[in-house]
């Protein structure tokens, strides 16, 4: 991809994404961390769009920035007396070392591998192609994913349900 616009967009979005992800780890305030997390998600969505994956990019905004960030906020505000700080455990140094190693390894692998790059242009229309693929080739995983969603939903409800106040849960 040598289009100047795409190159500029890639570098800007990459900096936003990684910078905000770094800030998620760095800031002390959990609410600020969530805001940076959203910014990072938006950056990833932008990267998707530079990869001409506009459906996935929009889904990324909708699900991650719109829904999962809200769930995280709910997790914060539903646990009021717990600390709202974003502190590290004592495992900080090993974690830094380990994640540094992982990043080095992944980076080395991605540069060292000789990928079979194709020179086809970006996708023209992804939404319908994804739809066809979902309901044709991947119909079984699709159904399983639907079942998984249902199970997760029921599981979440059952986990937080208070056994002691069955009657009170009605109102």
């Amino acid at each position: 991809m040598e289009d100047t616009g795409t190159v500029v967009a890639f570098w800007a979005l990459a900096i936003i994404t990684i910078g905000s992800a770094f800030m998620v780890a760095a800031v002390r305030n959990l609410i600020h961390a969530v805001v940076f997390l959203v910014l990072s998600f938006l950056g990833v969505a932008g990267l998707y769009i530079t990869l001409s994956a506009d459906f996935v990019g929009v889904v990324q905004i909708l699900i991650y920035s719109g829904a999962i960030a809200i769930l995280v906020i709910f997790a914060i505000v539903l646990t009021p007396q717990a600390g709202r700080d974003n502190a590290e455990t004592s495992m900080r140094l090993p974690a830094v070392v380990l994640s540094g190693l992982v990043a080095t390894m992944l980076g080395y692998a991605s540069i060292d591998t000789n990928w079979s790059i194709s020179d086809r242009p970006g996708f023209e229309e992804t939404a319908s192609a994804i739809g066809v693929a979902l309901l044709d080739k991947y119909i079984l995983p699709f159904e399983i994913a639907a079942a998984l969603m249902l199970v997760a939903m029921l599981g979440a409800i059952i986990i937080v349900r208070d056994e002691g106040t069955e009657g009170a849960a009605e109102d």
């Binding site: 969530v34 938006l42 929009v58 889904v59 909708l62 809200i70 906020i73």
Partner: peptide
Amino acid sequence: DLDVGVLFFVAIGSINTIAVFA
């Protein structure tokens, strides 16, 4: 003229939430 224009509208509408919460 996005391929997923309507979905884009909905997705952008959901970012509002974060701003309001902030």
